[in-house]
Amino acid sequence: MRKVPLRTAGCLALAALLLVTACASGPPPTPAATTAAPPTATTAAAAPSSATTAVPVGSAAPGGSAGLFSPTDVAWLQLTVAMNERLLPVLDLMSSRTTDPAWLRFAARLGTAHRADLSTARRLLAESGAPTTNPHEGHDMPGMVTDGELATLRSATGVGFQRRAGQHVRAHLDQAVRIATAEQRGGVHPATRVLASAVVRTGNADLAGLARLEQQ
């Protein structure tokens, strides 16, 4: 994973989010408080509560979801957008790299669900007033398919493609479930947490479906 400088509140929140996921196999952390006293000038940049305290990120669009977006909400949405954008090309390759009906059905269903999640995440980001640029552009992070890996997939077919594609899909789903679980625990925006809950639920179901496919 390429190291990137943490220069903004959103990046600090993302670091906290990923720190939570690194401990996902241990005891569940105590849910973060959704309100906190205003930090002092000397601790504002480093205080962990800044990642979960509800603060206005930007002006919500008229008719947008109720509630404020915390930096954790925005960081999770941005990472979800980046991860889904990297996975969709893998799923799109299925139609030309394998003829297995079960894999084709799995990829089509997964693609439809991830495009819907991507659309929702982008809409929520717009409502939050966060910048429209992708802060993870060019970053190779857990759960993201790299350009080199995608090039390798394009040269594979049949069972070899299915094996490699399955590895990437599993890595994506594992990480997506972990960070969505962290958003459930540390996020504050209602609609964003609803999306995170859906990602956890469908992600676990898709992991089980992928395991069945690979056992065939």
Rank of each mutant, 00 (worst) to 15 (best):
Q216N: 09
L210W: 04
P142Q: 07
Q78N: 12
H139D: 08
R170V: 08
T157F: 08
L17S: 12
T34K: 14
A13F: 05
A156C: 05
D140E: 14
A130C: 04
L118K: 06
M94K: 00
L195P: 03
P27C: 06
T132L: 13
L153D: 01
H189Q: 15
R170I: 04
S197V: 09
P39T: 12
G111Y: 02
R115W: 03
L153K: 02
R109N: 13
W76Y: 15
N84R: 07
V74R: 01
G64E: 05
S25V: 09
L77A: 07
T30S: 14
A41G: 05
A191P: 05
L125R: 07
E149I: 12
A176Q: 04
V188A: 11
L6I: 11
S25M: 10
H136G: 00
T42D: 13
V90A: 01
E183W: 07
V20K: 09
T99R: 13
G26D: 10
A171E: 04
N84I: 00
H172K: 03
R185D: 11
G129N: 06
L12I: 04
L77W: 06
L14S: 13
L88Y: 01
A130H: 01
L110T: 15
S155M: 13
S119C: 05
T53P: 02
A13H: 05
P5M: 04
H136K: 02
C23H: 15
V194Q: 14
L18W: 15
A126S: 14
V145I: 14
Q216C: 03
T112M: 06
T43R: 11
T42G: 00
T52R: 03
G138K: 07
V188W: 02
A22I: 02
A176D: 08
T157V: 04
A32V: 08
P38Y: 09
G129D: 05
G148H: 08
G143Q: 02
R164K: 10
A165L: 05
V145E: 00
L93K: 01
